[in-house]
């Protein structure tokens, strides 16, 4: 009797989980299906649920409408440079807050924590005019430079460095005559590689997927990131959904593939980032 109940439970739980997983993956699969279908299929009953034969043609139409690879490259440049900046400047500041003694350290750190609570939309309009004044409109600098270091990164690095590196190690290196930057470079950096991986994934994903700020400051097609480019595809007057979803599918694929390859690292990075906060 008990065993039978256990079996029923097991089946119920698995059915629930499988339905959840199918619903979770289906829109992505269906995005691929639509990317391979001609436009008129969208109004056909019953709806298409298996791939068609327009994979190449739809993507060729994408290339005719937007500079797809240019936008991919822009996204890659913006996300990589921002990530590098965040890793460097956040770990440097995190190191200072965790291990260096200076006046006002705790207060300044508290200020950084408070800035995390400010909603990004509050300063959006003046930010836009600052970028205009600097002549950075339609320039990738407008995305990269303001993003080079952020409060969350500093907070994250400080917590990690605090626990990862014993104070004695730093003192010993200083006595040996290492400059403080050398201590950072030769001792801190090699010991915080896992924190770099986590913060790097978080930052790269965030910048790659960001929409509001790039939409505000990148108005010229040559400066579009991939998110703005696929939005432009969708915003066109004549809607060819095979083409729109083809662009969306190929824009989504790279990150999904990287995610599948390193899924453990991704999941732990993205969730740790929020649980520890």
């Amino acid at each position: 009797m008990l065993r039978k109940k256990g079996f029923v439970n097991k089946v119920t739980i698995h059915v629930l989980l499988i339905i959840g997983a199918l619903l979770s993956v289906f829109p992505l699969y269906w995005m691929f299906v639509m990317a391979t279908q001609p436009n008129h299929v969208i109004n056909k009953l019953p709806p298409a649920v298996v791939p068609g034969d327009k994979l190449v043609e739809n993507f060729r139409n994408v290339l005719e409408n937007v500079d797809f690879f240019g936008a991919m490259w822009n996204s890659f440049v913006v996300a990589s440079l921002t990530t590098l900046g965040v890793l460097f400047f956040s770990s440097l500041a995190g190191f200072a807050f965790a291990k260096l003694q200076f006046k006002g350290r705790e207060k300044l750190f508290a200020v950084i924590l408070i800035t995390m609570m400010i909603p990004p939309q509050l300063g959006l309009i003046p930010q836009y005019f600052i970028i205009t004044k600097l002549g950075w409109l339609n320039d990738l600098k407008a995305i990269i430079i303001p993003g080079l270091v952020n409060a969350f990164g500093i907070f994250w690095m400080r917590q990690y460095i605090k626990d990862a590196i014993p104070d004695e190690l730093i003192e010993a290196a200083k006595i040996d005559g290492c400059s403080i930057f050398r201590v950072y470079w030769n001792i801190v950096v090699p010991s915080i590689l896992p924190a770099f991986a986590t913060l790097g994934i978080l930052t790269f994903m965030f910048v790659w997927n960001d929409f509001l700020w790039p939409l505000t400051v990148l108005r010229d097609e040559s400066s579009y990131t991939i998110q703005i480019a696929i939005r432009a595809l969708q915003d066109a007057y004549v809607k060819d959904y095979g083409m729109i979803l083809s662009g969306t599918f190929w824009a989504t694929l790279p990150l999904v593939v990287v995610f599948l390859m390193f899924n453990k690292l991704f999941i732990s990075s993205l969730t740790q980032g929020s649980v520890k906060q």
Binding site: G20, L28, K44, L45, Q227, T248, A251, L255
Partner: peptide
């Protein structure tokens, strides 16, 4: 875990476009 997590890797723009078509007003 991977199946549940993959939507979060997808950009909001891509999600919004796909759902625009999923939630099309057409009967089809």
């Amino acid at each position: 875990r991977v199946a549940y997590f993959v939507p979060n890797v997808t950009s909001i723009v891509a999600v919004a476009i796909v759902f625009t078509v999923l939630f099309s007003e057409q009967e089809a």
